[in-house]
Amino acid sequence: MAKQILKVSEKDFFDQMGVFFIGFVSQYGYDRVLSVLGRHMRDFLNGLDNLHEYLKFSYPRMRAPSFICENETKQGLTLHYRSKRRGFVYYTMGQIREVARHFYHKEMKIELVREELLFDMVHVTFQLTFDNRAFTMASLAMTREEKHLPISASVLFEIFPFCIVFG
């Protein structure tokens, strides 16, 4: 097996395969798709599910994972990864870290907080630590805009999670 020949752990092998994958897909033009998923790393992570939905048109048998961000701060966020495919945790960590480095010029630390199997679904919680100043800027802009609305913008976002707001 490759990891035995290379004399690396399974974790390191799959992590580096995730890093390599970003360079590999870039050779085939997918780097342009990845680069427009968001202006900031937080936007990219929030748009991953939409990217996978788009890719299902080209790859109909794809079993796409799901990503949910929460507890966002200016130092990072908590990322939930769910997939029916097992064994991709470290691969995913390598991909996310390489996207941060390659497209957003950010160093990212990823900590595996919890991994559990729920029915046929793998649910993993990661703590991502990176310079997330975009969160602070977005929060300040939203706070300023909310002052002019007769109701809180968060109420609208809860009622209409997929809406467009023009300022």
Rank of each mutant, 00 (worst) to 15 (best):
Met121Arg: 03
Arg97Trp: 01
Leu55Asp: 10
Ser66Leu: 12
Ile110Ala: 11
Lys84Ser: 14
Glu53Tyr: 10
Tyr59Gln: 09
Asn46Met: 14
Met121Leu: 14
Tyr91Met: 04
Glu111His: 10
Arg114Thr: 01
Pro60Arg: 04
Ala64Cys: 06
Thr73Val: 04
Asn71Gly: 04
Val124Gly: 11
Met62Asp: 13
Arg114Cys: 05
Met41Arg: 02
Tyr90Val: 00
Asn71Tyr: 08
Lys74Arg: 10
Thr125Trp: 05
Tyr59Lys: 05
Met41Glu: 02
Met108Asp: 11
Asp49Val: 04
Tyr90Leu: 00
Gly76His: 05
Glu107Gln: 15
Tyr90Phe: 05
Glu107Trp: 07
Tyr28Asn: 09
Gly29Asp: 04
Lys56Ile: 06
Glu98Pro: 11
Gly47Phe: 05
Asn71Glu: 15
Ser66Gln: 09
Ile68Lys: 15
Phe103Ala: 02
Tyr54Thr: 12
Arg42Tyr: 14
Gln75Phe: 07
Tyr81Cys: 03
Phe57Glu: 14
Val89Gln: 13
Val33His: 05
Arg97Ala: 08
Asp43Val: 05
Gly76Asp: 12
His80Cys: 11
Arg85Lys: 14
Ser66Lys: 13
Tyr90Gln: 08
Asn46Gly: 12
Glu111Arg: 08
Leu37Tyr: 05
Arg86Asp: 12
His52Arg: 01
Ser58Pro: 06
Lys84His: 14
Ser66Arg: 13
Tyr90Pro: 00
Glu111Leu: 08
Lys109Ala: 08
Arg114Phe: 03
Arg86Asn: 13
Leu37Gln: 13
Val89Met: 03
Glu72Pro: 12
Met121Lys: 03
Asn71Pro: 07
Leu34Asp: 05
Gly94Asp: 10
Tyr81Gln: 01
Ser26Asn: 01
Cys69Glu: 06
Thr92Ser: 07
Arg42Thr: 12
Phe126Cys: 04
Asn46Gln: 13
Ile68His: 12
Ala100Trp: 02
Leu45Gly: 00
Leu45Cys: 07
His102Tyr: 13
His102Lys: 15
Asn50Gly: 10
Leu79Arg: 03
Gly76Lys: 01
Gly76Thr: 03
Phe44Leu: 04
Phe88Ser: 04
Leu77Trp: 05
His40Ala: 08
Ile110Thr: 07
Tyr30Asp: 11
Arg101Phe: 02
Asp49Tyr: 01
Leu51His: 00
Lys56Cys: 07
Ser26Thr: 01
Lys106Ala: 06
Phe57Pro: 02
Thr78Glu: 14
Met93Leu: 10
Gly47Trp: 02
Thr125Glu: 09
His105Trp: 08
His40Glu: 14
Arg85Ala: 09
His105Pro: 01
Tyr59Arg: 06
Thr78Trp: 09
Arg42Pro: 07
Met108Phe: 03
Met108Thr: 07
Tyr28Gln: 11
Glu53Ser: 14
Arg39Met: 12
Leu45Met: 07
Asp49Arg: 00
Asp49Ile: 03
Met62Cys: 03
Lys106Tyr: 08
Thr125Ala: 02
Glu72Cys: 12
Val124His: 10
Asp43Phe: 07
Ile96Ser: 06
Gln127Thr: 06
Tyr28Phe: 15
Met108Pro: 11
Tyr30Lys: 11
Ala64Phe: 09
Asn71Gln: 14
Glu72Lys: 12
Arg114Ile: 00
Lys106Asn: 11
Asp49Met: 04
Glu116Pro: 10
Gly38Phe: 03
